[in-house]
């Protein structure tokens, strides 16, 4: 091998220009930047929720608040409904990644099929959320700003607490207003954060419908790549990712 040939094979630095040092297209990089900033927004909401909770002597118990299931009446089925919602969202994430995968192989038929399933999953999740909000609206007699009237009887919110715990029982008995303030904060944060997440799911469904129309019309086939599916996919997975944290913060911890 000649000296010149050795010099030719030497790779210039990735940062020397002429190619993307990240080996990623502009659009994809920007969607990652957007997702990072969106993560900060959700993080801020969850931090304020956590801080408020840290300040509170008592806090509603998830097993008590979220124990209902459609058509199950008064039967206590703690966490079952939210598990179903989580399952639906994870499932729609899988169908989305399968659509992205099919896009890598320019397989229009499969992209269409998996995008349709993803949209169905997203709508099913939103339906579940609508049911849960309606149910809690009935329990609280409102969405935001409930439990502010000092004459509210303890019985109106004691059902949200694990009264088997002595400390919780004592606060409800001796400081009902402290418990009512916690209930007020809990539901304000719950509707704000799940509402903000639900708005993300809604816009994700709309984006999915738009790229489904483009896929069916053959726009991406003509373009020669399905990168738009990949970008919307990143957004959709992010929405699933946020749900993982919302699920932990509201329903588990």
């Amino acid at each position: 091998m000649s000296h010149a040939a050795v010099a030719d094979t030497k790779q210039p630095s990735a940062w020397a220009g002429g190619r993307s040092p990240y080996n990623v297209s502009y659009g994809k990089m920007m969607i990652w930047a957007f997702l990072l900033s969106d993560a900060l927004t959700f993080g801020a909401l969850l931090i304020s929720y956590g801080t408020r909770r840290f300040f509170s002597a008592v806090w509603p118990d998830a097993n008590q608040v979220f124990k209902s299931f459609p058509f199950a009446g008064e039967t206590a089925l703690p966490l079952l409904f939210v598990s179903l919602m989580t399952f639906i969202l994870i499932m729609s994430s899988v169908t989305m990644v399968l659509a992205v995968h099919a896009g890598h192989y320019n397989d229009r038929k499969s992209v269409t099929k998996w995008l349709l399933w993803t949209i169905i999953g997203g709508i099913a999740f939103l339906g579940c959320q609508a049911w849960e909000w309606t149910h809690l609206h009935g329990e609280c007699n409102g969405l935001w700003g409930t439990f502010t009237d000092v004459t509210t009887p303890v019985s109106a919110f004691s059902g949200f607490y694990d009264t088997h715990k002595e400390a919780v029982h004592a606060v409800l008995a001796n400081h009902p207003l402290v418990a009512m303030e916690s209930t007020h904060q809990f539901f304000n944060f719950f509707f704000t954060i799940t509402g903000f997440h639900g708005a993300h799911v809604t816009s994700g469904v709309i984006f999915n419908i738009l790229i489904l129309i483009n896929t069916v019309n053959g726009t991406y086939q003509r373009r020669g790549h399905y990168e738009m599916v990949e970008k919307v996919g990143l957004y959709w997975h992010f929405v699933d990712l946020v749900w993982v944290f919302v699920f932990t913060c509201f329903y588990l911890l």
Partner: peptide
């Protein structure tokens, strides 16, 4: 953008 696709694409 075709020159910039990641290895995946």
């Amino acid at each position: 953008q075709s020159k910039l696709y990641s290895g995946l694409m």
